[in-house]
Nucleic acid binder design. Sequence first.
DNA 1: AATCGTTATATTTTAAAAGACATAACGATG
DNA 2: CATCGTTATGTCTTTTAAAATATAACGATT
Lengths: 123, 123
Amino acid sequence: MADPIKNILKNNHDIKVNGSLWLESADGHFFGPGPVELLERIAETGSINMAAKAMNMSYKKAWALVNALNTQTSTPVVIAQTGGKKGGGSTVTHEAIELIKYHRQLRERFKDFLEKETQLLKT
Amino acid sequence: MADPIKNILKNNHDIKVNGSLWLESADGHFFGPGPVELLERIAETGSINMAAKAMNMSYKKAWALVNALNTQTSTPVVIAQTGGKKGGGSTVTHEAIELIKYHRQLRERFKDFLEKETQLLKT
DNA sequence: AATCGTTATATTTTAAAAGACATAACGATG
DNA sequence: CATCGTTATGTCTTTTAAAATATAACGATT
């Protein structure tokens, strides 16, 4: 029979199957783990700036992500307000929350898949 | 209830869940789609050089991949021979074939997962 | 010992991505 | 109407990754 994979690999302990998921359309992928976390942080902090800092990302990159998301959804997911009492801020729409929830569940299912495969690897 | 995701996304047709899988150990990931294809091509052509060309990869990168694989497996997966009647060449070990087979099956199961999720996305 | 195409490796160049920095607009509020 | 922190952009620099180029070793075969 075939050799178990674990015997082929060096350091066969702590070897695991890992991966990444994203949503994509014809014009490339656009909704991966990064944007999701950003949305979550914006929802928490009410600010693109603070959200970016919290995940150690430049404001510019964060803004670009938000902008990309907003143009790729039929309804904006982040509503930014410039000026105002606190200088401005951003809120997250109902749709964004749905996206976040969806992605959390998706990630959960993916995690199950990965764990199952990792187990299989060790047999 | 929650809005279906497809209604949130623009271009809701041809939207799909996609992803990537790899094996990884404590010291980073090392066995992704690229290396697998490379092994397959080396098995076909008997040469790292030709395999690299076939997948439009520089020889250097191909060699680096092979080298990484060989150092991360308990037994080499590619045996390279320098010099010789045809200048040299490379063969693939039994273990490499096992790895290829494993990865094909893994990819098949992943494909199922992705298709299931893509369907779910459209409901 | 000359030849051949491949392996093996170093060095340089190019390209792309990321990061740093700078600046203006904005508008509620005091 | 001056202030504030945020949004919104542009530009310039740095870092990183990839690609291109160059060169030597290798050994069966002729």
